[in-house]
Nucleic acid binder design. Structure first.
Length: 304
DNA sequence: GCCCTATGTTAAA
DNA sequence: TTAACCTAGGGCT
């Protein structure tokens, strides 16, 4: 799945291309037909990401909540105002960059006939957006949307102008340090920190020199805050670049293969290869049905 | 074509 | 802990 940075890019994209406009909302596939009818023709008035969830607010007060899950993605098309990403969501190739596909702006003749399973289609006078394969796509009242957000922890990418108070770094430190659960599990817990996924988990723990099997309560407040700041910085980079690059420039320069994506990560999907810092072979194990990558030299020997 | 994999979450067992 | 959700690409045959 797209981690939080992708959903924040989506929120920005929706505001850029659809903000303030009336949208025709349909469900070509049919599974979202009743929800689509509730917002069809309404004006898009807000677009905000919280962790991995997207909340689109409409002029009639209703909120469209989308969670892309493991496979979901949005495809965009339209006239020249649709600069920006052509597709944002689940990566279709290793290390795929979410970016404008380079096609020259063309006269907009309306959206193409939907192909395959399009759960939701949003159409303005300038372009369209198709949603495929989401885990969640539903229309909520404001109270229902707030109830969903209340279950999420603070988001390192929370927009400065957001009206939603998520507690920020202090709340993250509290939630992390009161648990006896291991860090590897806590970072994937969206009620502890919203938006972190499997790549940022592995890379942040490496960058901070933290043992994935250390417990939340074992961290000092300074260590926990450093972890937050590191996530905030690398995830903000992800928003800017449309891809996850966590290696520091100094650790990329001497790579034998200087071309991204071969040097984008320290440990993620680098099992068996030498650690960029200490040359110990990177290790991998399975934890709660997800792969966990770490360097036994820099971060500790492993499960215990 | 077939099988595996993937930046995720939820519900049932 | 496991299955289900449900999409597309890559490697293989």
């Amino acid at each position: 799945m797209p981690e939080g940075h992708s959903v924040h890019r989506l929120a920005r994209q929706f505001a850029d291309v659809f903000g303030g406009q009336e949208l025709a909302v349909t469900s070509p596939q049919g599974r979202f037909a009743s929800g689509a009818a509730r917002i069809d023709g309404a004006r898009l008035v807000s677009s905000e990401a919280h962790g991995k969830q997207l909340f689109l607010g409409f002029g009639n007060g209703l909120v469209l909540r989308v969670h892309l899950g493991l496979y979901g993605a949005w495809d965009f098309g339209g006239d020249g105002t649709f600069r920006g990403a052509s597709s944002i969501g689940a990566p279709r190739r290793i290390g795929e960059r979410e970016a404008y596909d380079g096609a020259a702006p063309a006269p907009y003749g309306g959206p193409p006939a939907p192909t395959g399973q399009v759960r939701a289609r949003l159409v303005s006078g300038h372009g369209w957006a198709d949603l495929r394969g989401p885990t969640a796509c539903e229309v909520l009242t404001p109270a229902e949307a707030s109830a969903v957000r209340a279950k999420l922890g603070p988001d390192p990418l929370r927009p400065a102008g957001s009206a939603w108070e998520d507690g920020g770094p202090e709340e993250f430190v509290r939630r992390l340090r009161r648990r006896s659960v291991i860090l590897a599990t806590l970072l994937m817990d969206q009620s502890v920190v919203a938006g972190v996924g499997n790549i940022y988990r592995a890379e942040a723990l490496f960058r901070q020199g933290l043992d994935p099997w250390a417990r939340g309560r074992d961290l000092g407040p300074g260590q926990a805050l450093d972890l937050w700041e590191d996530l905030a910085a690398t995830m903000a980079d992800g928003v800017r670049q449309g891809r996850i690059i966590t290696t520091r420039a100094a650790d990329r320069a001497d790579s034998a293969v200087p071309l991204w994506p071969d040097n984008a990560h320290y440990v993620y999907q680098r099992q068996g290869r030498p650690c960029r810092v200490c040359a110990t072979p990177v290790a991998v194990t399975e934890l709660a049905a997800r792969k966990l990558y770490w360097c036994p030299g820099c971060q500790g020997a492993g499960p215990r």
